[in-house]
Design a protein around this nucleic acid. Sequence first.
DNA 1: GCTCGACTTGGATGAAGTCCAATATCTGGT
DNA 2: ACCAGATATTGGACTTCATCCAAGTCGAGC
Lengths: 124, 124
Amino acid sequence: MTAQRRVVAEVLDGEHVHLTADEVHARAVAKLPEISRATVYNTLGELVTLGEVLEVATDKRAKRYDPNAHQPHHHLVCARCGAIRDVHPTGNPLSDLPDSERFGFTVSDVEVTYRGVCPNCAAA
Amino acid sequence: MTAQRRVVAEVLDGEHVHLTADEVHARAVAKLPEISRATVYNTLGELVTLGEVLEVATDKRAKRYDPNAHQPHHHLVCARCGAIRDVHPTGNPLSDLPDSERFGFTVSDVEVTYRGVCPNCAAA
DNA sequence: GCTCGACTTGGATGAAGTCCAATATCTGGT
DNA sequence: ACCAGATATTGGACTTCATCCAAGTCGAGC
């Protein structure tokens, strides 16, 4: 556990939002000016493989990192401004996929992304 | 309707797969050697806004283009090789999102991505 | 045939991410 | 405390995917 990794962990911990790698880097630099982008990417990658952080690719721009890895949840994304909220739908979509639709795959995970317009953008 | 656009449409129509923009370009070049990447991107963008083709961002690499835009469906992705199948789960995930979890959003769409390992990769 | 507008081209540019060699730091063993 | 090996970090080059733009081309209507 080095200073750099601690800083990255703190950035993700302190903010319950979905930051891009560059945003993580920007906030990490604020706390530890000499930290490099490569280290941020390395550390984020390690956190992902450790299961402490989730990668989400809700738009096709930058990946975002979700520190809320321990509670299963899905995402609700504003189509206009890109805002992301965690949501907890009822039901389990895994049980909605019959064997006949699995094509022999071993299905282990499911991601659900709801899309819509947030109240702010609807008002504007 | 120019020759270039017809070629792009043919590429997507002839293949019921999920091609990246570069793959579309490669196949378009096979039919019309002087077509440029920019035109492929332009045409794909137009087809997307016309609703004839869907963009899917199942991995964080290149966007893929799905010509099966008129029948609602979701995707099953192999975590190892990236293979994509269209699937049709039962149930409607939209009805699984209670009002209390919508945060005032006007929710209009939902994407479901199942992840697993395909038979080929499981055998290897 | 000419003109105007739309389409296409290829190359430059940008954004996001990865890679790598050199450097720094940490750890355990003596 | 010192050394050696292992591990981590750095910064910059590089890759990939995508977009932008100025210049050139094409075609329909006059």
